[in-house]
């Protein structure tokens, strides 16, 4: 029983941890490229913010899955 709890917690941690890393990596790349694009074309700021926010969906979904694992898996 204790082992099962450990595995559930581990699964929940993975489901938010991995997307968090992926989001961080994607945002680092998009952020750097976005800063470069903004330096040349400041009018692109709205587009860059949207592009920067898109990878955030990965970690949000990861959070939802982690919550579901913790709350529904017994």
């Amino acid at each position: 029983m204790e082992m099962q709890k450990v595995l559930i917690a581990f699964a929940a941690a993975l489901s938010i941890g991995l997307p968090a890393f992926a989001t961080a990596w994607a945002q680092s790349k998009i952020g750097a490229a976005g800063a470069g694009a903004l330096a040349e074309k400041p009018e692109l700021s709205g587009t860059i913010i949207i592009l920067l926010a898109i990878p955030e969906t990965m970690v949000i979904l990861g959070f939802v899955i982690a919550t579901m694992i913790l709350l529904t898996v017994k």
Partner: peptide, 11 residues
């Protein structure tokens, strides 16, 4: 970062 430079040169 490389991505920054590439974005600037594309501009």
């Amino acid at each position: 970062p490389t991505e920054y430079l590439v974005a600037r040169i594309q501009g």
